[in-house]
Simulated assay, not measured.
Amino acid sequence: MMRRIFITLIILLLLSNLSCQRVSENIPGAAGAKEVTDHKPAYGDTLVEGTIGEPSILIPMLAGDSASHAVAGLIFNGLVKYDKDLTLTGDLAESWDISKDGLVITFHLKKGVKWTDGVEFTAEDVMFGYKTIIDDKTPTAYSEDYKQVKKAEMPDKYTFRVTYEKPFAPALSSWGSLPVLPKHLLAGKDITKSELGRNPVGMGPFKLTKWTPGSEVVLESNPNYFEGKPYINRYVYRVIPDPATMFLELQAGGVDWMGLTPLQYTRQTQSAYFEKNFNKFRYPVFSYTYMGFNLKHPWFKDKRVRQAIAYAVDKDEIVHVVLFGLGKAATGPYVPDTWPYNPNVKRYEYNPEKAKTLLLDAGWKDTDGDGLLDKDGRPFEFTILTNMGNS
């Protein structure tokens, strides 16, 4: 059974973002970009991005996969956002004040911003979203940040204030797109059954116009976007689960932009053809792959079992063999050398013997000689769920 664990598990890996874009979509100033003579933007055209995974739901606080967040990120807004330099800046918040002790944040909201159905955005929407995300009935993985808030207030229609029990480092950054919802459409309803999960109403630069399951998600520019109409008229996500097939579509012009696998980046895009016809980029990104345990499952309630699995995975081998060195074994969701990164978090080195010992201590052993660990007559087997295109 230990051998099976080695094959199927991928533990937390920090990745570099690898992407390829046709030269016709030049980005002036980008490394490797071809020379362009006219930098003046113009309205129109469609950008087609390839994605291996299809969104599951487009309400941000309910989404647990990157495909959903990628699409929802073009539809919804938060009070704050990161700019291109990863500096926090205002989004729906015009400005904010932080008390000297860091416990109180007062957001001053932009006025005149409207949801795509024409209703004005106010502090009521932020308060409603906040109360929804901390509700135990809401199946979200992101509630803990908001449960640190001791008190939430609306001094007026365009002001939202939160007070924390104690200093909380990510307090400001947590007020992104997750907790802002249209109260006028969701109040008194079960958010998990709302039609907005597949037909969202947002305030972002794009709005959903078509979702063909297993095929594509089509967005059109929001002409009333409060920061100005986007220059791109349509943004299309084509769902292509197989990266090799997507790569062929890129070469054929079926997609304009895709993330590259390590193999594609290092071995399949070095030709003169690609140098001439595509721009290729590599940059660090807040992205990671991890295995999350269902702590309601009796096996995974035992800390020794979780630790055994961590010891059983050769993470460095995955980085060097599977990712061609384009990644790094990680201990959490933060990129090394950023302010929240803690280099002192305990690391689980590859140690299969220690993994076997921990499982034995937890009662798992091969009692019938079939090569599989078992306990109480049940073999140590479990299912790992992942999105399409990952294996």
Rank of each mutant, 00 (worst) to 15 (best):
V113F: 00
G214F: 07
Q21E: 12
V217Q: 02
N344L: 07
N351D: 14
M2A: 07
D145Q: 10
P167G: 07
I11Y: 15
H297G: 09
A312H: 13
H69S: 09
L360M: 09
I318D: 12
S143F: 11
K303W: 15
H184W: 06
L373E: 05
E165M: 06
D136L: 05
L248Q: 15
L92I: 13
K303D: 15
G253V: 08
A330W: 02
S287F: 14
R267C: 10
Y43L: 05
S143M: 11
S16F: 15
F281H: 12
E381R: 14
K356A: 14
P379Y: 12
T122N: 01
K40D: 14
P60S: 01
F206V: 03
Q307N: 14
K110F: 00
P243Y: 02
L358Y: 12
G64Q: 09
K189S: 06
R347Q: 14
P340D: 04
G64C: 05
N233Y: 12
Y290H: 14
Y43C: 02
Q268D: 13
P230R: 00
F168K: 12
E124Y: 07
F206D: 01
M388K: 09
I52V: 13
G259Y: 15
Q264T: 08
A70W: 12
G369M: 11
T163N: 05
T266W: 09
V162I: 13
A70P: 01
K147G: 00
T163W: 00
P182N: 02
P182G: 01
V313K: 07
A330V: 03
M154C: 14
A72T: 08
I232E: 03
D101N: 11
V36A: 14
T261M: 00
N224Q: 10
L92Q: 04
K356C: 07
P223H: 06
L62S: 04
S215M: 06
A63W: 00
S66P: 01
W364N: 03
M246E: 14
P205Q: 04
A63M: 05
Q268F: 13
R4W: 11
G389C: 04
G102T: 14
G259L: 12
K131N: 11
K315D: 12
E216A: 05
T357P: 04
Y235C: 02
Y283G: 00
D97P: 06
P230K: 02
G253W: 09
V313G: 07
H69M: 14
Y82I: 01
D366W: 05
L86H: 08
G369K: 13
E144W: 14
T159G: 07
L88S: 02
E54G: 02
G32L: 06
R22V: 13
L295S: 10
L9D: 11
L62K: 02
R378Y: 09
D156A: 03
Y130W: 10
W211E: 11
K229W: 12
G90I: 03
L88T: 06
L360A: 13
P352A: 07
L18H: 04
S271Y: 08
P200E: 01
R161F: 03
R267P: 07
V345E: 13
A187E: 15
E144L: 12
N77T: 13
P213T: 15
Y288H: 11
T261D: 00
